[in-house]
């Protein structure tokens, strides 16, 4: 798989480390009264969709940036890649 890095252009997926569903960017508020169950869902439960999936990849062998990659889990086609920092700043819920 080739990941279109927003700064570095097309890079081999082998340079990256995979983390998982991009909803991991939405860390729950630890002070919330329901934080226990929110963290259970955050840590363990996944949508795990067959189809379009937004996911976190870390460019370990490159510029060490985190990307949000949108990829089809049924074909491995990569639809887009954005800097995770910008996705987080844009404050749109990722899931």
């Amino acid at each position: 798989m080739i990941i279109p890095h927003p700064l570095l252009g097309p890079r081999d997926a082998q340079e990256f480390v995979y983390l998982g569903d991009a909803s991991l960017l939405d860390r729950p508020d630890w002070q919330h009264p329901e934080a226990g169950s929110a963290y259970y869902e955050y840590l363990y439960l996944r949508d795990n969709p067959a189809g379009v999936h937004r996911e976190l990849w870390f460019h370990e062998q490159g510029d060490r940036s985190w990307l949000v990659v949108t990829r089809d889990t049924t074909t491995h086609e990569i639809l887009s890649a954005e800097l995770a920092s910008q996705v987080a700043l844009s404050k749109e819920p990722v899931r």
């Binding site: 798989m1 997926a13 082998q14 995979y18 998982g20 569903d21 795990n48 067959a50 999936h53 996911e55 990829r71 889990t73 049924t74 074909t75 491995h76």
Partner: peptide, 13 residues
């Protein structure tokens, strides 16, 4: 392979 997938094939690395 290490990434979410439902495609019953992997990659070369």
């Amino acid at each position: 392979d290490g990434y979410n997938t439902y495609a019953q094939r992997g990659n070369l690395p």
